[in-house]
Amino acid sequence: MQVPTMADMMAKGENPDILFWVGCSGSFDDRAKKITKALVKILNNCQVSFAVLGSEESCTGDPAKRAGNEFTYQMQAMMNIEVLNAYEIKKIVTACPHCFNTLKNEYPELGGDYEVIHHTQMIQDLINRGKLGLEESGSFKGKKITFHDPCYLGRANDVYEAPRQLIEKLDAELVEMKRCRTKGLCCGAGGAQMFKEAEKGNKEINIERTEDAIETAAEVIATGCPFCNTMMTDGIKNAEKEGTVKVLDIAELIANAAEL
């Protein structure tokens, strides 16, 4: 797969328009890697001039900061900012709302000022500018799709429309869960919960949330976050619905509909 790194570009004396921040999930998690690849296919198809940091990328520090370890977070942030500033990065796209939030809102105070967008916003822009056409008889035509709002995209950053408009571009029927948008229920992974067992309770949060999704009778649960994807996928397995309900990232839906 054709993925230029910043170092390659630099060597050739080139400068990409935008940096694709892959993130730890997108780099290492098997499920999330598929989302990463779907996005790269879209970027390549639209001839977007982009690059990744590859082995020069490191965790943004988000889980450390949410867990209360500001030291680890700031060490990570400052290292990353050094790399980003050395490459004179201006614009960043990422498929992870946690990276998105940290890069966009928390790096500026440590000297990292970039225009940061979420991949759903970027894809929406590509379609609006006519760079990406979706097939007429798309595979999702008429299907019921519901969107699970990632907390760090929705409530944390007020991005609600981009992913929804993309679902509508698929000619699919967007069905909302009873708790959606500002009232969306967390999948249970934020705030470093992804990396630990939940505290004692009477239910797992992802199961509660998956029930909301199943109630809509949607065939696809769309998300825009690798953590949400994991949590919802586990929830669907738990409900033994793998056969009927798929959990897909918006990038995967679009790549699929554009037959990439």
Binding site: S58, C59, P63, A192, E197
Partner: peptide, 30 residues
């Protein structure tokens, strides 16, 4: 810190990811 989070934090400090993967392998997916 809950013990699982200690692991996560150590991983970030040692290899720049919350899991035990080497930073050099970050582009393997490609």
């Amino acid at each position: 810190v809950p013990s699982e989070l200690t692991g996560m934090l150590t991983n970030i400090e040692n290899n720049g990811a919350p899991w035990q993967f080497s930073q050099n392998d970050r582009l393997n997916w490609a």
